[in-house]
Design a protein around this nucleic acid. Structure first.
Length: 274
DNA sequence: AATTCAGCCTGTGCGC
DNA sequence: TGCGCACAGGCTGAAT
């Protein structure tokens, strides 16, 4: 579900609420969501720990605790985190409940239950392979035009597949990849190493732009996504192609097409994207 | 090493 | 109201 702008928005809406708060109680309704260690150990190690800081890497949220452990949460497709006041009701998809020393709650809800939670010492974060092997993020100092050009030159998969690969670029997902390719005017099925320097530069700028805009708009809410306070984002009102199948292209009026690329539903303008 | 793809889950929306 | 199917914002691990 959430991509980097959504996870960053969640981080921003939660950080002031949870930093400095002690977790006094945890209820785990679906133990299999806890991937490391056992749910029982997870519960014991978190109880009575204080959240020192809340960070993000790609689509992972990292709650650094005062016992040198880190609570790592990946929301996958439908995971949600809500910070709520005591007495707030919650639905049957709420699988973990963290209670803080002021009585407030952090709810982890997940319809499809694909989300994952870990608790590891800082020195053992390497156990989360998707976290340690993540590529540079858009808008970061490491994500340079040279990096993108060099990386693309070695790849012959579809550009859509490359942009979705978290090992190569961290944080992009299906929405923002489709949007970046639309802004850059590049066909999602183009072989990565076929892009020339100009196209790579357009793509570089487009990737940074869609991520920055997504964050500025508080993320994209289609169905499940909400921020840490339960609020919807507004980037869905600024999309060029995603979810706009058969609607006119904002640039040329041609109907937006949809097809499967890299195993994902892909939206594009057949006239503007070459 | 790079790439593809089934599998993991449960829900919503549509055509009939 | 029900049934079957397509689709869903992501990632992992196995096979090629």
């Amino acid at each position: 579900m959430p991509e980097m702008p959504e996870v960053e928005t969640i981080r921003r809406t939660l950080t002031g609420k949870v930093e400095g708060r002690k977790i006094t109680r945890i209820e785990i309704g679906l133990p299999r969501l806890v991937k490391w260690p056992t749910a029982h150990e997870f519960q014991a190690l978190i109880t009575d720990r204080t959240v020192v800081t809340l960070q993000r890497r790609g689509k992972y949220l990292l709650f650094y605790l005062d016992n040198d452990y880190v609570l790592v949460i990946h929301l996958r497709m439908t995971g949600r985190l809500y910070y709520v006041n005591p007495g707030t009701t919650y639905d049957r998809f709420t699988h973990l409940i963290f209670t803080f020393d002021n009585g407030d709650l952090l709810l982890y809800a997940d319809t499809r239950t694909l989300g994952t939670l870990y608790l590891l010492p800082q020195a053992e974060l390497w156990r989360i392979s998707g976290l340690v092997s993540m590529g540079p993020e858009p808008l970061s100092a490491e994500f340079t035009l040279d990096y993108l050009i060099n990386m693309l030159s070695k790849r012959k998969a579809a550009i859509k597949s490359i942009l979705l690969n978290q090992h190569l670029i961290g944080g992009l997902g299906n929405i923002y990849v489709d949007e970046a390719l639309a802004i850059a005017g590049i066909d999602p099925e183009r072989v990565a190493n076929s892009l020339n320097a100009t196209e790579a530069q357009y793509l570089y700028q487009a990737v940074n732009q869609v991520i920055a805009d997504g964050i500025a708009h508080g993320g994209t809410t289609f169905r499940d996504y909400r921020d840490g306070a339960g609020q919807s984002g507004s980037h869905q009102y600024h999309l060029n192609v995603y979810g706009r199948t058969n609607e006119p292209c904002h640039r040329c009026g041609t109907a937006i097409s949809r097809k499967e690329v890299a195993g994902r539903g892909t939206h594009y303008c057949p006239n503007c994207q070459k």
